[in-house]
Simulated scan of single mutants.
Amino acid sequence: MTRIGNSDLDVFPLSLGGNVFGWTADRDASFAVLDAFVVGGGDFIDTADSYSAWVPGNSGGESETIIGEWLASRRPSGVTVATKVSQHPDYRGLSASNVRKAAEASLRRLGLDAIDLYYAHFDDESVPLEETVGAFGALVEDGLVRNIAVSNYTAERIREWIDISGRSGVPLPVAVQPHYNLVHRNDVEETIIPVAREFGLGLVPYYSLASGFLTGKYRTTDAEGQSSPRAGGAAKYATEAGLRIIDTLEEIGDAHDTSIAATSLAWLRAQPTVVAPIASARTPEQVPDLLAGGRLELAADEIERLNAVSEWTPAGA
């Protein structure tokens, strides 16, 4: 178990992504994935109110609804649920009134009295940050949200949020959710991790497996014939440099009798301030690899090998 920032949330160090629920996983498949995750020791579920509004016929909130129905059916103990606000078609942006309405709608769909971890999904610079911070603080004060977090915010805006929180007495964020993995390191390592270290924030990275590329499934830039709707996003990484990373992951994984995906997740968990990478599964058969990634401990020399093969040049160098 690992603690999320300065919160009282102790979670298994791998978060199950709910972005596929109501998209590539229907209700029954989603229930099976959630069952396998919890039976295997997982207890941290990540979703957003906008999942999956991009699917024809969907209107947003499908993932939360499925998770809520699963929670009501299974009544699991000790499960931590994170969700987000700002992108639902009916609740766009981060004005105070919108944040309140969106949170209440999420609670109804999830069937919860309070959201364990509530993220500002994307920054909304059209709204004064003081208003947004105050809105999140009011949700905590009223018992609708237990912990505040931010996603896709720059380091500068995170600092500004924290400064406003300190001056206004609003609880500080406990987590930040950035795009971070072995093929996408630069910005997070240069700017976000230093802020997280300074203020005790836990990182909960998304795209932890680079849309599936870091499972080793995509070894060509040609996505044609791939069944997954995310194939194009994954295949773009199948360059000479990207495939060297996959080869190294495979070698290290073989030494531990585990998968490329689990090894990639283990590398991410070993990075400073990272609490629990987010990874999703469309079928229960994909869940064991994710759980293995939450348990595998890589040796220092293995981490260094992966650091070296995925090395990047810092901005301005």
Rank of each mutant, 00 (worst) to 15 (best):
A149V: 03
A149Q: 09
A149T: 02
V150W: 02
V150R: 01
V150S: 03
V150Y: 01
S151H: 06
S151I: 05
S151M: 03
N152T: 07
Y153R: 02
T154Y: 04
T154I: 04
E156L: 15
R157K: 15
I158Y: 09
R159N: 13
E160M: 04
I162P: 00
I162Q: 04
I162T: 03
D163K: 11
D163H: 10
I164Q: 07
S165P: 00
S165R: 05
R167P: 00
S168W: 00
S168G: 00
S168H: 03
G169H: 09
G169F: 09
G169A: 12
G169P: 04
V170W: 02
V170P: 04
P171Q: 10
L172S: 12
L172I: 02
P173A: 10
A175W: 07
V176L: 06
V176S: 10
V176W: 09
V176T: 15
Q177C: 10
Q177Y: 08
P178H: 12
P178W: 13
H179G: 00
H179C: 10
H179F: 12
N181T: 08
N181H: 14
N181Q: 09
V183Y: 06
H184V: 13
H184L: 14
R185H: 00
N186I: 15
D187K: 09
D187R: 11
V188W: 04
E189V: 07
E189P: 01
E189A: 08
E189G: 04
E189I: 09
E190W: 06
E190I: 04
E190G: 02
T191Q: 11
T191L: 12
T191G: 00
I192S: 02
I193W: 08
A196R: 12
A196G: 01
R197Y: 00
R197L: 15
E198C: 03
E198N: 05
E198M: 02
G200W: 10
L201D: 09
G202S: 06
G202Q: 07
G202R: 10
L203N: 00
L203A: 05
L203S: 03
V204S: 03
V204E: 02
V204G: 03
V204W: 06
P205K: 10
P205N: 07
P205C: 07
P205Y: 12
Y206D: 11
Y206N: 14
Y207M: 14
Y207Q: 12
Y207A: 14
S208D: 07
S208V: 05
L209G: 04
L209H: 08
A210L: 12
S211C: 05
S211Y: 14
G212M: 11
F213T: 06
L214V: 08
L214H: 08
T215H: 03
Y218S: 06
R219E: 02
T220Y: 04
T220A: 14
T220R: 13
D222E: 05
D222T: 01
E224C: 04
E224V: 13
G225S: 01
G225E: 06
Q226L: 11
S227T: 14
S228A: 14
S228G: 10
